[in-house]
Amino acid sequence: MTESRTESMPMDEGEVVKTNNQPTENRPFALKRWNALAVWAWDVDCDTCAICRVHLMEECLRCQSESSTECVVVWGDCNHSFHNCCMSQWIRQNNRCPLCQKNWVVQRIGK
């Protein structure tokens, strides 16, 4: 997960200020402003295809040397992802995920 971002969204102060924000004995501070924080990351375990060692967003080694048209990514039910070309070569001889050895079931194919 190389790419992740944090963004803070300033909220309208007025909304918060209306609530009881005066210091009290139990809460000796005033709440003047709060920021909601959201974090996101790609929903994959790894950015690199463990079979050919090329980044999943780039063409696999085979497609690089054969200049093929479309090199897409395949996700299994185990949430491991590979280049579809790399994986289709492997499952011809063994229908298991090369990383977790679980039975390989395609969850989705795409970019």
């Binding site: 696999c60 080694l61 690089q64 040397s65």
Partner: peptide, 12 residues
């Protein structure tokens, strides 16, 4: 002409 397996070995 280089092949996928040779390229992979170079990466290794």
């Amino acid at each position: 002409m280089t092949t996928p397996s040779r390229r992979r070995l170079m990466r290794d």
